[in-house]
């Protein structure tokens, strides 16, 4: 039994991110962190592998700075890590990512469960999860808030999903791709020994040739990044007793026609 989890590095959420003079996005020398949503995915992969007596492997797709997320993952307790990168993926879109991600899963034998975080906090809106699942031809269970039962021998899983209108309980056949919510677990902090071990780890880099696939032609591309237009709001402070403040605010809100 082998669990695969995907993650990557994102700029720290408090970083000042902006478009630099060359048109590229920069966050200066602010740190990168594991995509915060993925901490839950990493923890769940560790727990699932342990429960089933199997192994958990973490994969990032991207250039070398994503090794930081992989090292953090190893320090948390993931068994193995690999990074997929290839110059052919430069300027690629989510189809390219999904093709590479699916091929990386196929390279590993005996995988029944692939775990993602809910989304990436920087550029993404979770499309990588669903597209990877489709390229694998596997079922997707998104927004999983609890794994209620999993049977790797019978190849079934039962989960609770947190959807916009409520909670759904669903059963599925394995293999499956799942994305997990915050609240599914309490991610552990890397241990001192874990950090030491991870710092020495040599993370293999797989090219597309290693995975036996070619990058598909990108179907969409970013034309440019722009800094946010300066929000031209001048705050109007409303003073007085609470009753006076309330009355003045309601006047303003009626003028703004937002009530």
């Amino acid at each position: 039994m082998h669990v695969v989890v995907f993650t990557r590095s994102t700029p720290d959420t408090a970083a000042k991110v902006e478009v630099g003079a060359n048109g590229a996005v920069t966050w200066g020398d602010a740190a990168t962190v594991v995509n915060p949503w993925d901490e839950y995915a990493l923890e769940e992969a560790i727990l699932q592998a342990k429960n089933a007596g199997g192994k958990a492997t973490v994969i990032a797709i991207g250039p070398e700075f994503h090794n930081e997320a992989l090292k953090h993952s190893l320090a948390m307790g993931l068994d193995e890590a690999a990074r997929v990168w290839d110059s052919a993926l430069e300027g690629s879109d989510s189809l390219g990512y999904a093709t590479a991600a699916a091929a990386a899963v196929r390279k590993l034998a005996d995988v029944d469960l692939v775990i993602f975080g809910k989304e990436s906090v920087d550029v993404g809106t979770d499309q990588h999860i669903y597209q990877t699942a489709r390229k694998l031809g596997w079922t997707t269970l998104s927004y999983v808030s609890k794994i209620l039962a999993v049977d790797y021998a019978a190849k079934t899983i039962k989960v609770e999903r947190l959807l916009e209108q409520g909670k759904q309980i669903v059963t599925s056949r394995l293999p499956a791709v799942i994305s997990v919510m915050k609240d599914i677990n309490e991610p552990r902090y890397p241990s001192f020994i874990g950090i030491r071990k991870a710092s020495k780890a040599v993370i293999p880099e797989w090219s597309l040739a290693d995975l036996g696939v070619a990058a598909p032609a990108p179907q969409s591309q970013v034309v440019q990044f722009q800094n946010l237009p300066v929000r031209n709001v001048q705050v109007e402070m409303i003073a007085g007793t609470p009753e006076e403040q309330a009355a003045k605010l309601v006047d303003r809100l009626l003028e703004e026609k937002v009530l």
Binding site: P11, V17, E18, V25, V121, V222, F225, Q226, N227, L228
Partner: peptide
């Protein structure tokens, strides 16, 4: 919007 709305990305499909 990307990077938590700090940046606007302009993208085009084929």
């Amino acid at each position: 919007p990307v990077y938590a709305g700090k940046i606007i990305s302009e993208a085009v499909g084929s």
